[in-house]
Amino acid sequence: MTAMTKTATDKRKTAAVPDYHEQVVELGRETVGQVRCAEPFMVAEKVNVHYGDNHAIRDVTLEIGKKEVVALIGPSGCGKSTFLRCLNRMNDSIESARVSGNITLDGTDIYSKEQDPVALRARVGMVFQKPNPFPKSIYDNVAYGPRIHGLAGDRAELDTIVHSSLERAGLLKEVKDRLDEPGTSLSGGQQQRLCIARTIAVNPEVILMDEPCSALDPIATARIEDLMDELCEDYAIVIVTHSMQQAARVSRRVAYFHLGYLVEVDDTDKVFTNPQHKLTEDYITGRIG
């Protein structure tokens, strides 16, 4: 009964492309391609997310390797952000959200009772769509994480962390002389790099990025893409993006989501040159938007 009502709501959402909907229900249940990877670090098994009655993520299984960039793509509302937020339990703060299934980080279940979500988020950092620096100075923005986690013994150590984080985020040269100015006084692209610096200052193991460049111009975007290339030498990165070019440039593997299903996941070259699933093909050739 509930399954039927859900199908009915889904149908209304995609009334313009009913045949795709049918295909997803029929064909999208089984993910095609390679969900497994050689050196899995973060593993999601049969993850389901409900927002109240809305079944936003359906049976998604995906492995993310150590030092690997995985891009999540798909049409708006397909659940990319929702899936991403499962990986550091940011969905906990949404009252209506229910997450089921199994997600492990380096072998430990992150949804187990013993797991403290606060400690988890120090290991799995997140960069948001809109730059969101705190209304504090540039220095305090970056120092915030190390301070609350007690990463620095004294002021000198904290200075080192702040400087090296800004350096790695490619921002140090621009803000060296104005560390006391508010973070909100920077430009949008600088703010986003500040947010990245803030995230890596905690020294996480995985970095989640939800459309980190969607509010930025092409030059700022290029800088952040370069930055990702460097960061992936140390961190696993999961990035949500609406730009196929960006996914092609920065990621090693691509996962295509559709209406809550993970339809296809494989090496980036393979997905973009030779997609296995018709839905993926239609999306990357621009027929679903």
């Binding site: 606060v118 400690a119 948001f128 969101n132 705190f134 915030y144 609350i148 947010c195």
Partner: peptide, 26 residues
């Protein structure tokens, strides 16, 4: 803005750290 709250939580702050160190000053 919620985005600032999310930013603090995403860095691994507890609720009270988010409150006293970020939201309240803002």
């Amino acid at each position: 803005p919620t985005s600032i709250r999310d930013g603090a939580l995403g860095l691994g702050s507890t609720r009270s750290e988010t409150m006293t160190k970020v939201i309240f000053p803002a």
